Simulated scan of single mutants.
Amino acid sequence: MLIDHAPAPRRPRAVGHSLTTLVLVLCAIGPRATTAQSTTPWRTIRQDHLWLATFVDQPITSRWAFLGDVQWRRTDAGRNPQQLLTRGSITYRLTPGFRLGAGVNYVATAPYGELPSARPLRDRQIFYIAQINQKLGGTDVMQRYRFENRWLADVLADASGQDSLSASRFALRARYQLRGSRPLGGLTLRTQPVIGIMQNELFVGLSRTDRGVAVDQNRFSFGAGLPLTTTKRLDVLWLQQWIPVSRARASENNRTLWIVLNHTGRAR
């Protein structure tokens, strides 16, 4: 959700093309949903979610920065819990428009919706990111690549009702996000332009722990960014989330209202 407006160098563009090709190859060779044929048709489940989030991009020095976000996700139009996510990373700007980083992530997921998991899930991650920002005409374009090492554990309840975690299952996942944003005509708020946003993020599971499929998830969203101050912006987005659930031979096609408070600190 965060955009670096500095112009991008030519070299990272080549890196972006190479990494995009890698993601497409991973989609082609990743594990499939199942090797056995089944006559049961796949179903589509539609659910309504509400996600609230805050994103922080705070420079530490001229090259180092902290990226972090906290997200509170609800299902059934906000009535029931879905996920709580906390994430933080440190990035280094190699050249204008090109930054690398690493961080940690913790996700607590509750059984939710029409295809609930058997137990609550805890997902602890160490991840690596590469982010490329470019200016194409009047549009700011961001490409972000993320590679996640994941330790997944179920929440178990003993006879006394105390919670504990199962043994962790290790999994790998790659993600690619493409985002574009530009001012919406002459619309302004507090003398600053309102921006239009469109983005898509593809998740590729690299082990059978990730639902046993190659494409683990896809998120497409669009909306508007409303300036609040020179460092803060409120994004109001409509997100369409697609998740295949192979164990149930069904797909989630979730409609989500995503509200994000962004803070982009001043460069030092």
Rank of each mutant, 00 (worst) to 15 (best):
D57M: 05
Q58I: 10
Q58P: 07
I60E: 01
I60Y: 04
R63H: 15
D69A: 03
T75D: 14
D76P: 07
D76G: 07
A77K: 09
G78W: 02
R79H: 06
N80L: 11
G88N: 03
G88M: 04
T91H: 10
P96A: 04
L100W: 13
L100V: 15
G101C: 10
G101W: 09
A102M: 12
G103A: 04
V107H: 02
V107W: 05
A108T: 06
A108N: 11
T109L: 14
Y112S: 08
L115P: 04
L115I: 07
P116D: 12
S117D: 15
R122V: 15
R124K: 06
I126Y: 00
F127C: 07
F127M: 05
F127H: 08
Y128E: 13
Q131S: 15
I132A: 13
K135D: 12
G138K: 09
V141Y: 09
V141W: 14
Y145H: 12
E148I: 02
N149K: 04
A153L: 04
V155Q: 08
L156N: 09
D158M: 02
A159K: 05
S160C: 04
S164E: 08
A167N: 08
A167W: 06
F170C: 06
A171N: 05
L172M: 10
L172G: 10
A174Y: 00
R175T: 04
R175E: 13
L178V: 14
G180W: 07
R182I: 00
L184C: 09
G185N: 06
L187N: 01
Q192W: 07
I195L: 06
I195M: 07
G196A: 01
I197T: 08
I197G: 02
Q199Y: 01
N200T: 12
E201S: 05
